[in-house]
Amino acid sequence: MTPAIAVSHLNFHYPDADHPALQDVSFEVGAGEWVAIIGHNGSGKSTLAKNLNGLLAPDSGVVDIAGMTLAEETVWAIRAKVGIVFQNPDNQFVGATVADDVAFGLENRGIPRAEMLVRVQEALEAVEMSDFASREPARLSGGQKQRVAIAGIIAQRPDIIILDEATSMLDPAGRTEIIRLIQQLRATTQLTVLSITHDIDEAAKADRVILLNDGQIKTTGTPAEIFAYGPELLALGLDVPYPEKLKAALTARGVAMPQTYLDEEGLVAYLWTLHSTM
């Protein structure tokens, strides 16, 4: 099966920058997979996202999206297949009302109005914003605006949705709201999700995590494999999942802890065994 995203030997250098933003980046994302790209601010995550739909053109390397190689001739076809939700909820809201904003991408592609009406309605239902169709953005919360942005993408029926730090400007309630929505969409559609984030809780929901550091892929693995790096993640400017923090605190107190990553439930179970065999 063709991978949803295949990137090979991608290099990108901003004109005025001292260092390349991306260096020899290669990875694949399977159709229907949820992959998180994590890394500190300035690690090249967002540059990578913009290279995937031709908002930036790589210096060298190949980007294949759903079997199409990104080039000048394919860029619009590829943009129809890749939707990006950006960081700032306000600055990507083009429409004067919620429904108008969802329709914007459809208008650009010349979708007939009768079909637009159906698709806008469906997309708003999918993100549970139907009641807000005629609201203006000024009257929405950050989380609601991001839901509208996601609806605008769903309406275009893309294969891939990229969340470019889409939750980083939201409050915890908004963040949970968006992550839950993505999980929900994945359960009901074939969407491939690429979430670019430094939120460890968001990354934990992914099937696979790519760790980016200074424009290079440091490592790839399941969330458990990546989180097992523990305090090393701190040195890379990332957070450590809570169970790893507690593990470190216990290890420092002389308790023998397993090397593998334990989620909260696993850690509770492990500690309870220690308690029972005391």
Partner: peptide, 28 residues
């Protein structure tokens, strides 16, 4: 699960300290 904390721990360090006697930390 059956552990006991008093007072409520607020940091990982505090939690680890309170856990220690309950998981036989000294014995190790």
């Amino acid at each position: 699960r059956g552990f006991h904390f008093d007072p409520l721990p607020l940091t990982a360090e505090e939690l680890a300290t309170q856990l220690l006697p309950q998981i036989g930390g000294g014995a190790h």
